[in-house]
Computed example of a mutant assay.
Amino acid sequence: METLPSLTHDLVSISSHDDEAAAGEYILTWLREHTNARVSRDDHGNVIARKGHGDDSLALVGHHDVVPPDESQVDADGEYVIEERNGRLYGRGAADMKGCVAAAMLAFRDADPASELVFASFVGEEQGGVGCQAAIEDGFAPDYAVVGEGSTGYSAPGVTDVAVAHKGRRGSTIVAEGAAAHASEPDAGTNAIYRATDAVDVVRDLDFPSTTVLGHEMNGSVAATEIDGGSAWNVIPERCAVTVDERTVPDERAPLDRVEAIDGVSWRVDQDLPPMACGDADFAERVLDAATAAQDATPEHVVKPHATDAGWLAQAGTDCVVVGAAEPGEAHTADESVSLTVVERCRNVYERVAESWPSE
């Protein structure tokens, strides 16, 4: 019988930063060989499997794409470098999030579900959740989901918590238009940089969005992060652009459109990754019970700062929580790794939830 460490090792070794096809094929083949589930890979590359029956469906959700590896994570032949030491597996994608994809695969195989159980591993999460969005557009709509992104180490080091909410991200651009002139005659033109700085003053004075989810306060943020304007030291600039990073919370957005009250200033949204809030307190408690039973420590409901595919699912009507092995600051690093003990813990949590939810 295949072990979780070996399955994790196999998944992490498959290159999937430029093309997810090989990783998707591996997952598809494994599920068909090791389960009697209804397994498919859609036109986008998402792998989805279903078993069991019931009025409600529970999905175990992950993604098998990764960000580009650091040069130290690739050998001379272009293969991913994998190393296991001190109970941790090192390699690109180990933490984010092939370890928990493997955990979900084994939990899906072994669970005797209380209702319909779905396994889903999406493509394109690192490109803004394009695979998840496409699946939703095609009708993917589980009632509940446990998303295997990182939730370990939030309440205390080493504790695998249950995230009941996470922030989203809205990236936008403020564009100020003016009129060029020679810098020796500034009144002959209209300085786009001055208009842009007026817009930045508006951004600076905005209140940060905030809300409460299951008793947990969530605070967003708004910040100007880049500025690009001007063409030469002696030319009044005719254009200036300012990038704004906004960390959003459920049902709240900062009123950035106020900058358009300034002459010559426009505002556009470039990316809007939705936040997530679990709307079913009973489901959140049941998952916390499973997390408590799976470890000696006492996990808590927490709020996660990073956007995940749970945001897209929640926006479409799925009640989500996030439970995963990755720790804060672990993903996307040159020494990315995951604790194999914690990956096994997550497998335990997933299987417990699958067999106990929904309760009769």
Rank of each mutant, 00 (worst) to 15 (best):
P274H: 05
D280A: 00
K98R: 15
S40V: 12
S72D: 09
N46K: 12
G91E: 04
G158M: 00
V118P: 00
A261N: 13
L214K: 05
V164F: 05
T341K: 12
E137S: 12
R258Y: 07
F119P: 00
H34C: 03
S337T: 05
R258E: 15
E300W: 01
N86G: 14
W30Y: 13
D263H: 07
R88F: 04
S356W: 02
P274E: 05
A111T: 03
V162T: 01
W312G: 00
V303T: 15
A307L: 07
I27N: 07
H34Y: 04
R50K: 14
Q127K: 14
V12A: 06
Q271C: 00
M1R: 12
E330I: 10
E137P: 02
G264A: 11
P157E: 09
H44V: 14
A290L: 02
E336I: 05
G264V: 04
A297V: 03
A102G: 04
Y144L: 07
V12I: 13
V322Q: 14
G54N: 09
A188L: 14
P142D: 03
G230M: 08
G220P: 11
C100I: 00
N86R: 14
N234D: 11
F283W: 01
H44W: 10
A59G: 01
P328K: 12
P255I: 07
A294D: 03
I262T: 10
F122T: 15
P274D: 08
A314L: 00
R32T: 11
N191L: 04
I14D: 03
D112H: 12
I82Y: 05
D65A: 12
D319H: 14
L7A: 08
A102V: 09
T8P: 07
A134K: 13
E125P: 12
E252G: 03
P255N: 11
G54S: 08
T160G: 02
W312N: 15
G168Q: 01
D205G: 10
G150H: 08
H216I: 13
Q295C: 06
R195H: 14
N46Y: 11
V353H: 08
H332M: 10
R41G: 03
V265G: 06
A135G: 12
L4E: 06
L11M: 13
A135I: 11
D296I: 02
V338L: 08
D161E: 06
P299V: 09
V244S: 07
A293I: 02
S72Y: 02
G264N: 08
S172N: 07
D77H: 12
G324I: 07
H63G: 07
D187Q: 14
S155H: 02
G264S: 11
